[in-house]
Design a protein around this nucleic acid. Structure first.
Lengths: 358, 358
DNA sequence: CTGTTAGCGCGTTCAC
DNA sequence: GTGAACGCGCTAACAG
């Protein structure tokens, strides 16, 4: 029924071992026999049996890319970029040679699913795993992750973090690409302060994520440095946490406006949240940026098309994803110390302006 | 070094077969021995060897989800939804029982990569494959795809189309969930015509995709029915093709405005393109919708936040993706005839209005 | 309900 | 440069 390596060998009048050598291209084979074998492969429409080959070789060609929410372009862009470096362009024949199979796994932000996917990848003896986006800071989960990753690394799986800080235990088993979320958050709020804003609302992400914490810390640092967030300062009072989605931005902004109608700016944890914040501001009959400035984070493609265009912090998502892909393939050397911090660039656009006087 | 099933068997003082039965949960096993085995599994931190198990069972737990562009939420939403039905919620232990490994493969819209991924999935003996989004209409490629899919189906891989019309050959091997792109496109343009628009620009997608063709056909039907697109009518003249991205929307709209400054509306192939169109309209000093109405397609999450909110055609992407996932798992019966058409709903919002008189 | 016996299809030593 | 033989770790009959 299904054609095996032995069938190909028979047709090419060589031994199975020779066919294997041709297919894997690692051993010297005479050009003429190679020709014969390849012809037999094509004639028979032979496709390697992945499981069998993985079993014998004790490694597979699977590379897993874990994301929190694939419906969010933040992750889509990184994951897509990583795949471009891993999948290989194909040889145009659709025949598939030594390519890796780069696959994206959507955890939905759930710690359990994150671990489950890691186990599934471990089960498949994945060649590499790329973990993207913020990590969850629950100590139990972090310990479980560290243990699981150690086991994976131990089994020869390469581990790469992308847009994620390295584990506290900081095993040298991984290469980490971390975004400068703190610095970006800080510069963004500094920008607002320099514009003259003094009461600034902050719509943060879920409290247990590193991304949320770092961006918020940057914000608070900027406030503190400007003397706007001392004891009982506004920093805490004007901060509301919620998921990284539009609805959260909308509701949190209404909430903040209710608490403190005097704010002149709202900073959102990311661009999607910022869109919701914009909608809330408008629904209150306020104008952006004349009455209230709004800012986001990430600089997703749609942000420049918001009206007015969104002031935000640009993260080089595609470049980071691609680099993570190369690291996973071993095509690029890990950064010194295993960790590289990726700069975040402030993008000043129309959604922020000086506050109205009076 | 790595612990195997036999190690677990030894520790639990049972035969390897029994361990296998417990793990796969398909055979009756006494509760007490099951307990013992599970304890041994936990003690030893045992993880099943996927390749070995796939080899022996001649099937794997891999399910592939092919998308054209994972950075586009259109695909992200469908793929994420499909994964929710496939991956299983995990048992909370991170231990991974009989779950499938749902993986997303990003073809980048390239026919070669599409075939390559299919081959890779075939090599892994995937349990199912879900193909999302519009198909490429090149006859050679379609034939190659049909052949490849037939082979996959033949090997026991379940095939599901999601948001994609069934193959011309229409083998009964697949279940297809097709969007009513033609009907949606038609109703959208009918809406504009009923508002009073007579000169309508159309920014289409890449010409070789089914999605592009069907949406455009709906548009042209509406024009024809209104007597606006006879011989040498505007339909053709005011249509420009381009990729499904923002930039294409921007440039094509400028192009159309140059050709025919008298248009009063622009219909875009999808929401992302529509955003670009909006930007172009504004950059020409025109207002939306007073001077020019703009409409999109898909109703992606950001569309309601455009200013003014985008009139578009809503596709139930999440529901369709989830259903495709269930079909791939065999959790749901295929629709009668193997194909179901999914309705598209017109969403009238602020970006369309009657044209200015005079 | 449980143990025993064979392979699944391929990579990899070894010889030649 | 090529062939022969073995075993990777597991599942699927078949007994009992």
């Amino acid at each position: 029924m299904t054609v095996t390596l032995a069938d190909v060998a028979a047709r090419a009048r060589v031994s199975p071992a020779t066919v294997s050598r041709v297919l894997n291209g690692n051993y010297p084979v005479a050009a003429s026999t190679r020709e014969r074998v390849l012809r037999a492969v094509d004639d028979l429409d032979y496709v390697l049996n992945g499981p069998a080959s993985s079993l014998a070789a004790a490694t597979s060609d699977l590379v897993g890319i874990l994301v929190n929410d694939i419906a969010d372009p933040f992750f889509g862009i990184m994951a897509g970029a990583a795949q471009t470096q891993i999948g290989g362009p194909g040889d145009g024949s659709g025949r598939a040679g030594g390519e890796k199979l780069a696959v994206i796994c959507n955890t939905g932000g759930s710690p359990e699913r994150e671990l489950t996917y890691l186990t599934l990848l471990q089960r498949q003896r994945a060649a590499a795993v790329v973990l993207t986006g913020g990590a969850i800071e629950d100590p139990d989960h972090q310990a479980a992750m560290a243990a699981k990753l150690a086991k994976l690394a131990d089994a020869g799986t390469r581990i790469v973090f992308c847009g994620r800080p390295p584990l506290p235990e900081g095993d040298a088993l991984v290469a980490a690409l971390a975004f400068d979320n703190r610095g970006g958050g800080r510069r963004l709020t500094e920008h607002l302060i320099s514009l003259g804003h003094r009461r600034i609302g902050y719509v943060a992400g879920p409290p247990e994520r590193t991304t949320t914490r770092h961006r918020l810390e940057g914000h608070r640092e900027a406030l503190r440095d400007a003397g706007l967030d001392g004891e009982g300062g506004d920093g805490e009072r004007l901060t509301v946490h919620g998921p990284y989605d539009r609805r959260s931005g909308y509701e949190a902004t209404l909430d903040i406006l209710r608490r403190e109608p005097g704010i002149t700016a709202v900073v959102a944890a990311n661009d999607t949240v910022a869109l919701g914040a914009c909608a809330a501001v408008r629904d209150q009959g306020l104008r952006i940026p004349q009455d209230i400035s709004v800012a986001g984070f990430d600089d997703l493609p749609f942000s420049v098309d918001a009206v007015p265009a969104l002031t935000t912090v640009r993260l080089p998502l595609f470049e980071a994803g691609a680099r993570a892909g190369r690291l996973a393939m071993g095509k690029e050397n890990p950064p010194p110390g295993g960790i590289a911090t990726i700069a975040a660039e402030l993008m000043i656009r129309g959604s922020t302006a000086p506050p109205r006087v009076g």
